[in-house]
């Protein structure tokens, strides 16, 4: 098990290497002159060139990349072009809020999604199923910025129960988490339903019925564990969706997280920040995939130690 984990962690290195290249090229090949931006709108040609030299932007692109990697290995992500503070500090302050936002969103999305999925599958073609799937379709279709505004309108403006934005205390997490988790919950619900319905058609479920088990205890004892195996994989993929979704949600709720930092950074071409954020998102995604694989092995005995 430990060996497997180590092997997987080592396997991440080449992937990360490729990610750094892509991120680096991506940021450097999009149009727009960072040096001009840093120098300010009134700067003359000489100043801009000076700034360019200062930032190392005049060097050939591969040299820039090696500098970037070298610094990265030292834990130096560069300095923000806008605030002139280290990128690491900028990100650190924003990481925790976004982490919790993602965590709470995913947690409720999983619980609610799986519950709706199970009830719908067990009561298929009954009103519970129709209601569950109607909710799911709405949840998938509704754009998150609109849902966010709607919730804000109701709970913050009309009822005044929750803040409209920012993050003064834990209440600042509630509306963004609901907004961010809704789409994922809906997808998990639909996926759990179809997965459980497939499992209920399996031969071993028929064996369970022939043994004299009631339908409910069959679902609990025999079906859910099998049905959750594909759901876990799919949920892992949804993390990518959440990372993207946090950009929109954080903007709507002026939430001080990574998503909004990214939007600001893109607007001002603060490319050290952009680079670092995309890199961070990639690392998160790779780590989540690892966790998914470990859970997969936990549920499925056949692949446990191979």
């Amino acid at each position: 098990m430990l060996q497997y984990l180590l092997r997987r962690l080592l396997g991440m290195i080449p992937i990360l290497f490729i990610v750094t290249i892509i991120v680096f090229l991506f940021v450097h090949l999009i149009p727009g002159d960072a040096a001009r931006l840093v120098a300010g709108p009134d700067a003359n040609k000489e100043t801009i060139e000076l700034v360019r030299k200062d930032l190392g932007l005049d060097k050939p692109i591969h040299e820039q990349y090696f500098t970037f990697i070298g610094n990265l290995l030292k834990g130096d992500l560069g300095t923000s072009l806008k605030t002139h503070k280290p990128v690491f500090d900028e990100l650190a302050g924003r990481f925790i809020p976004t982490f919790w936002l993602t965590f709470w969103s995913m947690l409720w999305a999983c619980i609610v999604g799986i519950l709706i999925g199970i009830v719908s599958a067990v009561k298929r073609n009954k009103w519970q199923d129709y209601t569950g799937m109607l909710i799911a379709v709405v949840g998938i279709s509704i754009p998150s910025f609109w849902l966010g505004l709607l919730l804000m309108q109701l709970f913050s403006v009309k009822l005044g129960w929750l803040p409209t934005g920012g993050l003064e205390d834990w209440r600042g997490y509630i509306l963004p988490s609901i907004t961010l988790g809704t789409g994922v919950a809906a997808i998990i619900a639909r996926f759990s339903r179809s997965s459980l319905m497939d499992v209920l058609k399996e031969d071993y479920i028929r064996t369970g019925r022939a043994k004299g088990f009631a339908e409910n205890s069959l679902v609990k004892r025999h079906a859910i564990k099998n049905a959750m195996i594909p759901v876990i994989t799919m949920t892992g993929l949804q993390f990518g969706f959440l990372l993207g979704g946090s950009v929109v949600t954080e903007t709507v709720f002026s939430f001080p997280g990574l998503g909004r930092l990214l939007i600001d950074a893109i607007a001002t071409r603060d490319y050290p920040i952009i680079q670092a954020e995309i890199l961070l998102f990639s690392v998160e995604f790779i780590l989540i995939n690892l966790v998914v694989d470990l859970m997969y092995g936990f549920l499925n005995p056949q692949i446990r130690y191979s």
Binding site: E202, D203, Y204, R206, T207, G208, A210, K211, H222, K225, N226, I229, L299, N300, P301, Q302
Partner: peptide, 15 residues
């Protein structure tokens, strides 16, 4: 009691 034609799939793979 009953036994089935498909021994490969009649047992639950995860238990």
């Amino acid at each position: 009691a009953m036994i089935f034609q498909e021994p490969m799939t009649s047992l639950n793979p995860v238990y």
